[in-house]
């Protein structure tokens, strides 16, 4: 008998009693009067920032204003985004501008996922990450978010909340552990 069969047989034999699955939508969760405000306040404590695009402004303009002398910039939201043959080729990217599908007010998280699963290294290799999210794509809690992101899957999807960080040395919070050292969310 293979390990698989042995393990499954044991688990079948040893099943403890358990309740039925609860209805997770039956419990009321927290809501926010101003979701953008909740998101922006939180993300600023997590090594990030959030702005709303004003009339006359462009994403490129906001990015250029914030980081006037960038190194390599890759804009995946552009019409013909740069392609690479291996994910390692993104290793020296300074600013990556990527689409975010959905933002979550309670956690300042943004859902990223894309067809083909080819750019995922970019989200994590870039020094500064710019997430471009539609203005109305913001929900209260992670439960609301999962109800929406389950619709589309591309082999990989992730929530990103602020910048990469660690407190592994004496609980001192340091931004930029392995991933992006800065995160900017632009609602358009």
């Amino acid at each position: 008998m293979s390990s698989r069969e042995q393990i499954l047989a044991k688990l079948r034999h040893k099943r403890p009693h358990g309740p039925a699955l609860p209805d997770i939508d039956a419990v009321p969760f927290i809501t926010f009067a101003d979701k953008f405000d909740a998101f922006a306040t939180l993300v600023r404590n997590l090594g990030g920032d959030a702005v709303q695009l004003q009339p006359g402004e462009t994403v490129a303009g906001i990015v250029a204003q914030r980081w006037p002398q960038p190194g390599r910039v890759v804009d995946v939201t552009a019409a013909n985004p740069e392609q690479v043959s291996a994910p390692h080729d993104w290793h020296d990217v300074d600013i990556a501008i990527v689409p975010g599908e959905l933002a979550v007010a309670e956690s300042a998280a943004v859902w990223v996922s894309h067809a083909g699963n080819s750019q995922r290294a970019l989200y994590f290799l870039t020094q500064k990450l710019v997430l471009v999210v539609p203005k109305d794509a913001i929900v209260d809690t992670m439960r609301d978010a999962y109800a929406r992101v389950s619709i589309r899957e591309h082999g990989f999807g992730g929530f990103i909340s602020g910048s990469s960080r660690t407190a592994d040395i004496e609980q001192s919070l340091v931004m930029g552990a392995h991933g992006a050292m800065a995160a900017l969310v632009i609602f358009v």
């Binding site: 997590l46 992730g158 909340s161």
Partner: peptide
Amino acid sequence: AHLGVFTRLLARSAIGSPITTYTSHFQQAR
């Protein structure tokens, strides 16, 4: 959908943050 419960509890319980920076869902190889 159950991640809508567990991702709300994990980082709050672990480190007192609303969520971890990265919550990554791996379904296929790159």
